[in-house]
Design a protein around this nucleic acid. Sequence first.
DNA 1: GCTGTATGCAGAT
DNA 2: TCTGCCTACAGCG
Length: 271
Amino acid sequence: MPEGHTLHRLAATINERFGGRRVRSSSPQGRFVDGAARVDGRVLRQADAWGKHLLVEVDGLAESVHVHLGLWGSMAVLSGGAQPVVGQVRWRVAHDEATADLRGPATCELLAPPGVEALVSRLGPDPLRPDADPTRAWRRLQSSRSPLATLLMDQSVIAGVGNVYRAEVLFRRGIAPTTRARDIDEETWLALWSDLVALMREGVRTGRIDTVRPEHEPDAMGREPRQDDHGGEVYVYRRDGSPCLVCDTPVRRAELAGRNVFWCPVCQQDG
DNA sequence: GCTGTATGCAGAT
DNA sequence: TCTGCCTACAGCG
């Protein structure tokens, strides 16, 4: 379920399991045959994540493998020897002890250095990268007439945030999705950024999106435990019609720039 | 078996 | 703002 934390977690897993190892590389599904063949038999150097993009460097190959998971993509790492191919495996990387299977990516391609540079330079700061500069994103907010909620999904403004983190961080900061980006002051923005850094780091650590503070967890509130489709505990994402975990007001949903946005009309106010 | 849906994004209109 | 697309799975008949 790919937001930025998924890609950073994946990069770490690839480095741990495949970094410095000579790999076999193939495209069982057949749509990355030439690229996979260029990688085959080489040493995988390292993987790195920029927002929702994964770049894999290989010794002796100028190009990097560029992966974007899109809505449905996933990469599964399996331990042990030869694995059967299940479903549509676009790219398989393997050595004797592990196999990584990439399924359903929006992008899986070889990208030459100028392409890598162009890709990275069009992304906004990534809360999961230690050198990221949140002020660069704030300047973009200041020069826009769009709602903050829309810009949070714009990868050239801030890289790695998807629909779940967007909804949840706006809830946690008490900001309505209709709030104009230019009405956000820098202090408010930096607090939101810090919250994203903490939430997304936790997501990298656990592999799921959990945003509910301990005091609002169902047992602390005397409620029945909930089960969320996407595997984490959240305040508002896809909870429309259900009572807000803080104030019991029904959570609302609307479409904004073609994507669903979820919020509590009482806890979140226009800034 | 079919339909709808999904944490995304690019390109056309 | 709209369309198409990458794939798997739940829900339905």
